[in-house]
Design a protein around this nucleic acid. Structure first.
Length: 562
RNA sequence: GGGGCGGUAGCUCAGCUGGAUAGAGCAUUCGCCUUCUAAGCGAACGGUCGUGGGUUCGAAUCCCACCCGCCUCACCA
């Protein structure tokens, strides 16, 4: 029985005609600590009892068994419950220290597979800041789901197919310089890509050339395939460097090209069901029953489209992984696409279309405009990470010049700042990119959380890395209580984050815990002699453990010193 | 025009399953390092919660209308 249920039980004992679920629903956690740890507003009883809420609260307060609480206070129409701090606190600390890595675990998932489509950059282009979002949000969701008992499968659905590559090949055919590409593959290819897109405005035949090249690629033309393989290989090399910096691993790199030979089955299935209709020379699936515009499955030139490949991918993933849920961490601008995808799968008779969830996130813009590789209006992720690492290294040189592994810590802090900045706010918020915000290390940032933990670790080192087994961890100073309460809410925070696919809840949790700990640190001399010094150190250890867990869930490293 | 998301302090945001004086960070001003890392702590300043109605004992939160911004609506992904 958790604390809230204990409060509810005490209320029910004093007022037996209430039902438990009502009381659990009405019980709230006051924002202000002075109003207790739990509070029951009594307004909802006023009508049925024909009494003023103030009177109801007073009556209830006099009937309640106060023995199991520190105190129960009637505050006007509210009944405020104060828990026994020492006892509850010791319980929380024992639970954490007993098995820090698994504190907050849950078994909601029962080992069910969840595929997560994340990152999915386009090859032959530099990875921009826009791709950071899908990568770090998807990775954090995967971590969170694993924590509550699912088995996440991270899939990097590389954008390695489509008319865009036809265009790139057409550009390479016209202007390509093999030596230049070899020297700096990504940037050189991007130049060609930008050029052909720019010049296509005045040379519409370039678009046709692009379509032709893609057609050749789809039908297995030797030269087209050679170029494609080369572009893909070089791109992946570069991407891996970034993923290593970010600390993200994937279970699969099957991108769009992987489904090239799996498209026929989809087309046949659609035909067999009589879903495919001809319209303006192309093949579509009518989705007016879903209040959606038609899904274009096959272009008038016979080539397939994004959604055709996504249909094949969805079916493949279901067969391969037997997913219970299939998540797509893709920008909110593709909401319509995923609605269509689900609708077509549903039309095809796949009841598991309901297990598919688009996890949208807000657009990252630059100077208020949509980032676009074609227009060169893009910030490279790698540059931002390097800038941030450099700044972190400078900070270390200033603040902690003797730090042993300074370069490694600078990476953890610099990259941590970038990741945390992306995750701390609600997913769907749009972000206008500002470097100075991303690489900020003060206030509500990743480094703030890392720093709070590094100071905690520093204290523990100075205390000689104490062990707490069998110790009395009763801690009743008023300063410790807010920290302990926050520690106790880790599990429910994780579950909410999992249910809502919302990493920002973990970010906010970690910030709040770090802040509360910093306040504690500023007011209590932990290493001074004190009857509860051991319990205080246990609190420090628990904070460090939980901050570390929180950061790791977000994909942020937690250095012991910085 | 249809659909989606958003509008809270100068800026960036939290709060939105209705509850007790609307919170935080940044910025500005001012305190705190002979004491566990000042990437920190504290204080001050700062708000018609887009507008107008409605529901309710109670609305930033729920409902309706309107205004503004962004995204999206068949041969890109």
């Amino acid at each position: 029985m958790n604390e809230k249920e204990q409060v509810a039980a005490a209320i029910l004992k004093a007022m037996p005609d209430l039902d438990k679920s009502t009381v659990m629903d009405r019980l709230e956690r006051p924002k202000d600590d002075k109003n207790g740890d739990y509070a029951l507003p009594t307004f909802f009883l006023a009508k049925q009892l024909h009494q003023a809420p103030q009177k109801i609260a007073a009556d209830l307060g006099s009937k309640i068994d106060q023995g199991s609480f520190d105190k129960v206070v009637v505050a006007g129409p509210y009944l405020n419950f104060f828990l026994k701090k020492g006892k509850v606190g010791a319980g929380v600390l024992e639970t954490i220290l007993n098995d820090p890595e698994h504190y907050g675990d849950a078994t909601l998932g029962n080992g069910a597979h969840v595929t997560i489509d994340l990152s999915s950059p386009n090859i032959a282009k530099p990875m921009g800041m826009g791709h950071l979002r899908s990568t770090v949000i998807g990775n954090a969701i995967a971590n969170i789901l694993a924590k509550v008992g699912y088995e996440p499968i991270r899939i990097n659905h590389l954008g390695d197919w489509g008319t865009q590559f036809g265009k790139l090949m057409a550009a390479y055919e016209m202007w390509g310089d093999e030596a230049a590409v070899k020297a700096d593959p990504i940037n050189t290819l991007q130049k060609y890509y930008v050029r052909i897109n720019t010049e296509a405005d005045t040379h519409p035949e370039y678009n046709d050339a692009g379509r032709e090249w893609f057609k050749k690629l789809e039908s297995g033309d030797k030269e087209a395939t050679r170029l494609w393989k080369w572009f893909r290989r070089e791109s992946l090399k570069r991407f891996m460097k970034i993923y290593k910096m970010l600390g993200v691993d994937f279970d699969s790199y099957n991108g769009e090209a992987f489904y090239n030979d799996k498209m026929d089955e989809i087309l046949h299935l659609l035909e067999d069901k009589g879903l495919l209709k001809e319209s303006r020379g192309a093949d579509i699936v009518d989705l007016s029953a879903y209040n959606l515009n038609p899904a274009l499955i096959r272009k008038s030139d016979g080539a397939t489209l994004y959604i055709t490949r996504d249909l094949a991918a969805a079916l493949f993933r279901k067969r391969m992984y037997g997913f219970k849920q299939s998540l797509y961490v893709v920008g909110a601008e593709q909401t319509n696409h995923f609605a269509q995808l689900k609708a077509v799968l549903s039309e095809m008779g796949f009841t598991w279309s309901k297990q598919i969830h688009h996890i949208p996130f807000g657009l990252m813009s630059l100077n208020g405009k949509k980032m676009s590789t074609r227009k060169g209006n893009i910030v490279q992720l790698e540059d931002v990470l390097n800038d941030s690492i450099k700044l972190a290294r400078q900070q270390i040189a200033e603040k902690n010049p003797d730090l042993a592994n300074a370069d490694e810590v600078a990476k953890q802090v610099g990259v941590g700042a970038v990741i945390f900045h992306d995750l701390k706010n609600e997913r769907t918020n749009a972000i206008d990119f500002k470097l100075e915000d991303v690489v900020k290390f003060e206030g509500e940032t990743g480094p703030y959380v890392q720093y709070a933990r590094a100071r905690a670790e520093s204290i523990l080192r100075k205390a000689g890395k104490p062990s707490f087994a069998g110790e009395d961890l009763t801690l009743d100073d008023a300063e410790a209580w807010p920290v302990i309460k926050q520690l106790g809410q880790f599990g429910e925070t994780i579950q909410r984050a999992a249910e809502n696919y919302d990493p920002s809840l973990i970010g906010k949790y970690a910030l709040a815990l770090a802040k509360l700990f910093n306040q504690y640190y500023a007011h209590v001399r932990i290493l001074d002699d004190h009857p509860q010094k051991t319990a205080r150190l246990a609190l420090v250890q628990a904070v460090s453990d939980v901050l570390k867990s929180s950061l790791l869930l977000l994909g942020v490293k937690a250095p012991d010193e910085m």
